[in-house]
């Protein structure tokens, strides 16, 4: 079943890609096949392979339950939030929280996760910034 749905989505993607490729504006400089041809070929391959997947589905994927979906969505939300907050409050503080959250959700005890978060953040800061000189996000406090 998953494969049929996947093939369907893939086909839509392929057709959408071909349609978008036909909208590519032409430039005054040009070569014999132009900027559209190769993308259109790719769109065709995408669509054909999706049709093949739809017609000959393999074994069914083993999707997790609602709880796990919620778990994963929360992790994605945290990582996206982390991407936004990083330049605002700096590397050390934001990483402590993100790493703490991930440790906790992967099954560390509360205290362990707190220690884990702080040591991952400070460890990376010490190794990559202080020793190796990599530039990390600077917050208002400079770290």
């Amino acid at each position: 079943m998953s494969d049929r749905v996947f093939g369907g989505i893939g086909l839509l993607l392929g057709v959408f890609f071909i349609w978008q490729a036909t909208l590519i504006p032409l430039s005054f400089i040009s070569d014999p096949i132009g900027p559209k041809t190769f993308p259109i070929i790719l769109g065709v391959v995408l669509s054909l392979s999706s049709v093949a997947i739809m017609l000959l589905p393999g074994g069914s994927a083993d999707w997790p339950g609602m709880r796990t979906f919620a778990e994963l969505s929360a992790a994605v939300a945290v990582l996206i939030a982390y991407s936004f907050v990083l330049p605002l409050v700096g590397f050390v503080v934001s990483t402590i929280f993100a790493a703490f959250y991930l440790c906790l959700r992967l099954g560390a005890p509360l205290k362990g996760a707190a220690i884990g978060g702080v040591s991952i953040s400070l460890g990376i800061y010490a190794l990559f910034h202080l020793v190796l000189g990599l530039s990390l996000a600077r917050g208002p406090w400079g770290f």
């Binding site: 991930l102 099954g107 362990g112 884990g116 991952i120």
Partner: peptide, 10 residues
């Protein structure tokens, strides 16, 4: 793993 994977992510 619960300390390792967060480290990898960061």
């Amino acid at each position: 793993t619960h300390y390792l994977m967060p480290g990898v992510a960061m």
